[in-house]
Design a protein around this nucleic acid. Structure first.
Lengths: 186, 186
DNA sequence: GTCTATATTAAGATAGAC
DNA sequence: GTCTATCTTAATATAGAC
């Protein structure tokens, strides 16, 4: 990576923005080259597996983002209410107030490799576990906590679709506003 | 349309299945030719505007499906509970028990024309109105009914994403199970 | 109305200079 | 590590026979 114009994390971040916007099949190497400022041949040097491998790097980049902005904040100190508020803030930024699609949605259409599907599923399962854990901590029983986590993430994903189709970010902001009560109320 | 192998509705239906599975950019004319049994040149004869026009026909086909399977049943006779159950049944079939993505989701990624975006938005707005109307009929105030309709459709869209990523249809079936109480309970 | 054949552009991918 | 140049395949799109 000596003399690299972009380090791996920055590169994966740019790729993520492209994949979440255009989906797997809609993300061409030309678009990735434009988004990263690197030529196609340079992308192949960094990712010999081509688009599949770049998509995997993007998926790993989201997983790392989840780790830093959801899992760690939820396990930190302070009241659950406070911690959830912090996560809500991070999610709002990550999804650009509802203007940016979720890569779990856009990368999961048919076209990608099975490795990619596995990576996306694993990231989503971790997200579900983190939300369920904080709901358990707030007094919900494990079964109910799991359902609430699923509802919470389902609300976020669904509201992102509505926001995109309607061209209106309010559904997404509402889903975030309801996140706290969903994970905390018995 | 004389001597046509497929009438326009059948053609649009096949196209819809392809678009919802692969998204706009992932749907090539080769895939459409395979899905319809027509050669690419024949598709251009039927839809001189190419892929954009075929996507528009697919969007119109969903809109017509919504009309027949959501709007009309919800305005029919019988108790609201019964009518909603009928719509739930239709939705469960349409989404293949949660195995088939929603075209509002997969066709709304960047890549399609603005006409297509408008058609998708219009279809979603009609769906929202139909759900809000039945919620009003069940005694909810217009503002609250509108929110419930948004929640209901958001749940469906989000649970379809979860189901697809997790490879598990249960989230979708749960979102349908909750549809009735969402639209009917004060 | 559908077909085969073909033109044209863009995609994924590699070779080799610097 | 990145670049220009190039190869190969697949994409969109059209011409013309039947």
């Amino acid at each position: 990576m000596a003399n690299a114009k972009l380090n791996d994390a920055e590169l994966a971040g740019r790729a993520l923005e492209t994949f979440r916007t255009y989906g797997f099949e809609g993300t061409s190497l030309n678009r990735l080259a434009e988004a990263t400022g690197l030529e196609k041949a340079s992308l192949y040097y960094r990712f010999p597996g081509g688009k599949d491998e770049i998509a995997m790097a993007a998926a790993a980049h989201v997983a790392a983002w989840f780790e830093r902005n959801i899992f760690i904040p939820l396990e930190a100190g302070g009241s659950p209410e406070r911690r959830i508020r912090s996560v809500v803030h991070n999610l709002r930024e990550f999804y650009g107030d509802g203007t940016k699609p979720c890569v779990l949605d856009t990368l999961s259409l048919r076209g990608g490799s099975s490795h990619l599907s596995n990576a996306l599923r694993s990231a989503l399962e971790q997200w579900l576990s983190a939300f369920a854990a904080v709901a358990v901590e707030c007094g919900l029983r494990p079964d109910k906590a799991k359902l609430r986590a699923e509802q919470a993430i389902g609300n976020i994903e669904g509201s992102l679709v509505l926001a995109r189709v309607l061209g209106d970010s309010k559904p997404f902001l509402r889903s975030l506003a309801e996140l706290g009560s969903l994970l905390r109320q018995p």
